[in-house]
Simulated scan of single mutants.
Amino acid sequence: MKLNHRDLVNVRVVRVDESRIDAACAIRFKDEMRALSEDGPARIVLDLGQVEFLDSSGLGAVVAALKAVRQGQRLELADLHPTVQRVFHLTRMDSVFTIHDSVADALERGRDAC
């Protein structure tokens, strides 16, 4: 599982550099996200732009990452591929997560909220 991150003012952008989050990598994804959120700022934006496939294990891993953020911290999603967005919509997880059209949109909305 390849996750890259960059820290900006009060936000950490974590990019998934894989085309799939599935049963084969879900545990590694959860572990890496937990480590990245432990010392992260109040906002974490998960860039899923490269992810074209997300199965139920992958969805569970993203939900586990949300549950792992500490109090006062937020996990937001950005740049969902249409097939991934459909999984979030069909499972109604789109009502649980804040989902942005792009990372740039997430960063802009974060500035507006300050």
Results as ranks from 00 to 15, higher is better:
residue 2 K to V: 11
residue 5 H to E: 14
residue 6 R to I: 05
residue 6 R to G: 02
residue 7 D to S: 10
residue 12 R to N: 02
residue 12 R to A: 03
residue 14 V to H: 00
residue 17 D to R: 14
residue 18 E to C: 09
residue 23 A to H: 10
residue 24 A to C: 01
residue 25 C to R: 11
residue 28 R to H: 11
residue 28 R to F: 06
residue 29 F to V: 03
residue 30 K to L: 05
residue 30 K to M: 14
residue 32 E to T: 13
residue 34 R to L: 11
residue 36 L to V: 01
residue 38 E to Y: 01
residue 38 E to I: 06
residue 39 D to F: 07
residue 39 D to E: 12
residue 39 D to I: 08
residue 41 P to E: 05
residue 43 R to Y: 06
residue 43 R to S: 03
residue 43 R to T: 07
residue 45 V to R: 02
residue 49 G to Q: 04
residue 50 Q to K: 10
residue 50 Q to I: 00
residue 51 V to G: 04
residue 52 E to D: 07
residue 55 D to F: 07
residue 55 D to G: 03
residue 56 S to L: 07
residue 57 S to P: 01
residue 57 S to W: 02
residue 58 G to T: 04
residue 59 L to Q: 04
residue 59 L to R: 06
residue 59 L to H: 03
residue 59 L to D: 10
residue 60 G to L: 02
residue 61 A to E: 05
residue 61 A to Y: 05
residue 64 A to D: 15
residue 64 A to K: 05
residue 64 A to Q: 04
residue 65 A to T: 10
residue 65 A to S: 15
residue 66 L to C: 02
residue 66 L to A: 13
residue 66 L to Q: 09
residue 66 L to H: 10
residue 67 K to V: 02
residue 68 A to R: 09
residue 70 R to S: 15
residue 71 Q to V: 13
residue 72 G to E: 07
residue 73 Q to V: 05
residue 75 L to I: 09
residue 78 A to K: 05
residue 79 D to I: 03
residue 79 D to C: 11
residue 79 D to A: 15
residue 80 L to E: 09
residue 81 H to R: 09
residue 82 P to V: 02
residue 84 V to A: 13
residue 84 V to Y: 03
residue 85 Q to Y: 06
residue 85 Q to I: 00
residue 86 R to Y: 05
residue 87 V to A: 06
residue 87 V to G: 06
residue 88 F to T: 08
residue 89 H to T: 15
residue 89 H to A: 15
residue 89 H to W: 06
residue 89 H to P: 00
residue 90 L to W: 05
residue 90 L to V: 15
residue 92 R to H: 13
residue 93 M to E: 02
residue 94 D to C: 07
residue 96 V to A: 11
residue 100 H to Q: 08
residue 100 H to D: 06
residue 104 A to R: 08
residue 104 A to P: 00
residue 105 D to K: 11
residue 105 D to F: 00
residue 106 A to T: 04
residue 106 A to Q: 04
residue 107 L to Y: 00
residue 107 L to D: 01
residue 107 L to G: 01
residue 109 R to D: 10
residue 109 R to T: 02
residue 109 R to I: 02
residue 109 R to Q: 14
residue 111 R to D: 13
residue 113 A to L: 13
